[in-house]
């Protein structure tokens, strides 16, 4: 990796965009990369637009705040695009030329002609992954959608490493040390109830990661 990765994750409150960013950031940290992670700074409400940001590089990272010019955009829910459930419009606003977009959807979205034109001008690489479906199928809960998205990201980037992702998940879900805001903590408990043991959950999540990677497809616009 020579270039800095600037990742914008857009989704709906409750889908785990902040958690995904934390896991990704922690994994990058474990791989000895430079990294910063921050959420969109707003009130946390379920189903409201939510964004989080991850910067990964080999050189020190100084810049902070929302990523206005991402190299990679992850869309956790089609409604971010189709219903405009986002504070960043259009969804690819600011994307670097040649940048990558990863969308959670089982089929390619029906984008407007204008959107397709703009994506083509940007030479954007658009990938789809049926993340929610994979999550339901493998782990029996849509709450693993964010992990499926990380699986797809791994397929594209190959980094941070799978080992690092696994140990980041163990740290995130395994201990009580992680600091999460009130409502995120409540969701964590819901997730934990689904799994008798954290190890079982991690195992399932690794499976989600693998399956998501396999289920990806690319669409040229």
């Amino acid at each position: 990796m020579t270039e800095k990765m600037s990742i914008r994750m857009s989704g709906l409150g409750g889908q785990g965009v902040v958690t995904a960013a934390h896991i990704l950031g922690m994994a990058a940290y474990k791989d000895d990369l430079q990294v910063t992670v921050n959420p969109f700074f707003g009130a946390e409400k379920r189903l409201a637009p939510a964004e989080s940001y991850v910067r990964i590089a080999q050189e020190p990272i100084y810049e902070r705040g929302e990523i206005l010019y991402p190299s990679l955009i992850m869309v956790f829910h089609p409604h971010v695009i189709t219903m405009g459930k986002s504070y960043t419009m259009p969804f690819f606003d600011g994307l670097e030329a040649g940048g990558t977009i990863l969308i959670n959807s089982a089929s390619a979205l029906d984008l407007s002609e204008e959107e397709r034109d703009n994506l083509a001008k940007l030479d954007a690489q658009v990938h789809y992954v049926p993340a929610s479906e994979v999550a339901m199928e493998v782990s029996g809960t849509h709450l693993s959608t964010n992990i499926a998205m990380l699986g797809a990201l791994y397929r594209i980037q190959q980094r941070p490493s799978l080992d690092a992702l696994e140990s980041a998940m163990v740290e995130r879900f395994g201990g009580s040390k992680f600091v999460a805001s009130g409502s995120t903590a409540a969701l964590d408990d819901a997730v934990k109830e689904k799994f008798a043991k954290v190890s079982q959950m991690i195992e399932k999540n690794l499976e989600v990661i693998e399956k998501a990677g396999e289920s990806m497809f690319q669409q040229t616009h």
């Binding site: 940290y29 990294v35 910063t36 921050n38 902070r64």
Partner: peptide
């Protein structure tokens, strides 16, 4: 600075 420091994870 709130959020930019408080809510940002860094090394």
């Amino acid at each position: 600075d709130g959020f930019f420091v408080t809510h940002t994870k860094e090394i």
